[in-house]
């Protein structure tokens, strides 16, 4: 990966720049640790009591811009491996173009999902007698989704690497379509956690970092059959443990390994 950075390869540089931009803007806006979508004025969402009030503080443009920043920051680390596929399978002169088209398709999926998720969040805000109830319901839904076969179905599709046309308009369409379908699978995988982010109050910025790490390490797991199971950071923890053990313990020789 660092070699790719040194060579300014598109599949690495473009998502890295997008991610850095997203995090920088969110950090600048996070002086009060406010959720980006509902706190344009810095007012905590806990103080909002009606949909009208919420919309008064959050124009559709502001909601869209904040959502785009959130997606850019949190999802850009997930783009390296599918973009590597798009670049590897494209002519060298088309790699930047393929990367931008993929990112456009991917962003389109998330922006469309954003409309729905923002609407759900605003509705929850308006309909729930107490904010904690809305937050609790979404947290429960996120946990249920996390262990479900449906989540695995989406995760598996995040690992799809389709055939891509190499020439002309067909190559452009395929790159954008790959981005769109990968983005749709990503929405299916992460929607519940992102909805939770929209409803979080104080600690939102820290929670975003935690969720970003979580969805990144979750994607390290191989595709798997559909089943109810705990899934998440298991592989990352095993990597950390194994690497620590390797550095602390001397390597066994073959004679020691073979009974």
């Amino acid at each position: 990966m660092w070699a790719a950075a040194r060579r300014f390869e598109a599949w690495f540089v473009i998502p890295a720049v997008i991610g850095l931009f997203g995090w920088s803007m969110l950090a600048l806006d996070a002086g009060g640790l406010t959720p980006p979508a509902f706190c344009a004025s810095g007012t905590s969402w806990l103080e909002l009591s009606s949909l009208n009030h919420a919309l008064a503080f959050n124009s559709p443009a502001k909601l869209a811009a904040d959502w785009a920043l959130m997606v850019a920051a949190m999802m850009s680390p997930l783009l390296f491996t599918p973009l590597r596929h798009a670049c590897d399978r494209s002519f060298a002169r088309r790699r930047t173009r393929a990367t931008l088209l993929f990112v456009s398709g991917y962003a389109a999926a998330w922006m469309m999902a954003g409309i729905l998720l923002q609407a759900i969040a605003l509705t929850a805000l308006w309909a729930m007698p107490a904010p904690a109830i809305g937050l609790g319901l979404v947290a429960a839904a996120a946990m249920g989704w996390q262990v479900s076969p449906a989540k695995q179905w989406c995760l598996n599709r995040c690992h799809r690497r389709p055939r891509l046309a190499a020439f002309g308009v067909a190559a452009d369409v395929d790159a954008a379509t790959f981005g769109l379908t990968n983005g749709a699978a990503c929405v299916g995988t992460c929607w519940a956690l992102m909805l939770l982010m929209l409803l979080m109050g104080s600690g939102h910025f820290a929670a975003m970092i935690a969720v970003t790490l979580f969805v990144f390490v979750e994607r390290l797991e191989n595709p798997a059959p559909l089943a109810w199971r705990l899934r998440g950071a298991g592989k990352a923890l095993r990597i950390v443990t194994a690497q620590a053990r390797m550095r602390l313990a001397p390597r066994r020789s073959f004679e020691e390994a073979l009974p």
């Binding site: 194994a242 690497q243 390994a257």
Partner: peptide
């Protein structure tokens, strides 16, 4: 196993498990 995955493990005579790495 070094990247958080299944170690190579094989059953040997006498109920012993042979765990090995590529480096070996």
């Amino acid at each position: 196993a070094a990247v958080g995955q299944h170690a190579f493990m094989l059953p040997m005579p006498g109920g012993v498990t042979f765990t090995y790495t590529p480096g070996q």
